[in-house]
């Protein structure tokens, strides 16, 4: 059995670090893990994704269509770009953040405002849309904690021990930010537990 986690967002948002923390937790828990992403050109403010697969044995690093269990999206619209990966049971944690691509700010396209409704209309119900930037600013006076809060929320529906997440944060975050990230993670997890769909 292979489990699939898909992370989407915009270049510069910290997807690589977020996916390091997540994949690191499964590594700590003793699973076989693969984490695939693309470096280079697309990182310059373009759409960026990371794919994490874990289980007893993982071969391909690429998630097959409709096989995604968990989605973490750091920007609202980016969630909609990969519909073929989702199914009606896929669980979503979405940052309620809107970043306008140049194609919108130049007036050529409209930004889809109703991300949640679009997902609902595809039979997807397990959606947690969270203004993580506001939460991070309020609780930590630091919007950079937003990603870790969202990871905490997602962790609440993944069955591995919390220690694995904490040691992954220790291994993947600079020393002086570790404690703050652990607090952010726990805050997110608490939110996730209290807001079960």
């Amino acid at each position: 059995m292979v489990n699939n986690i898909f992370i989407s967002g915009v270049g510069g948002q910290g997807i690589i670090t977020a996916s390091r923390i997540i994949s690191g937790a499964f590594f700590e828990a003793g699973f076989d893990v693969k984490k695939a992403e693309i470096h280079g050109l697309s990182q310059r403010g373009g759409s960026v994704v990371s794919q994490i697969r874990y289980g007893d044995k993982v071969f391909s690093p690429i998630i097959p269509k409709a096989k995604c269990e968990h989605v973490l999206s750091l920007e609202k619209m980016e969630t909609l770009r990969y519909m073929e990966l989702y199914n009606s049971k896929t669980r979503f944690v979405i940052n309620d953040l809107k970043m306008l691509p140049i194609t919108v700010s130049s007036g050529k396209f409209d930004y889809p405002e109703n991300v949640k409704d679009i997902l609902f209309s595809r039979g997807i119900n397990d959606i947690k849309l969270i203004d993580a930037d506001a939460m991070a600013k309020k609780e930590f006076s630091d919007s950079r904690m937003a990603n870790t809060i969202l990871i905490g929320v997602m962790s609440s529906s993944i069955d591995i021990d919390e220690n694995n997440w904490i040691s992954s944060i220790h291994k993947n975050i600079k020393n002086k930010y570790i404690e703050k990230n652990i607090q952010a993670f726990k805050l997110g997890k608490k939110y996730g537990v209290e807001n079960v769909k």
Binding site: Q43, G45, G46, S47, E78, L80, R81, M83, T103, K108
Partner: peptide, 13 residues
């Protein structure tokens, strides 16, 4: 494919 005609997000300087 579920075609939502989303705004593309090309990389930028």
């Amino acid at each position: 494919q579920d075609d939502l005609s989303l705004p593309p997000r090309p990389p930028q300087m």
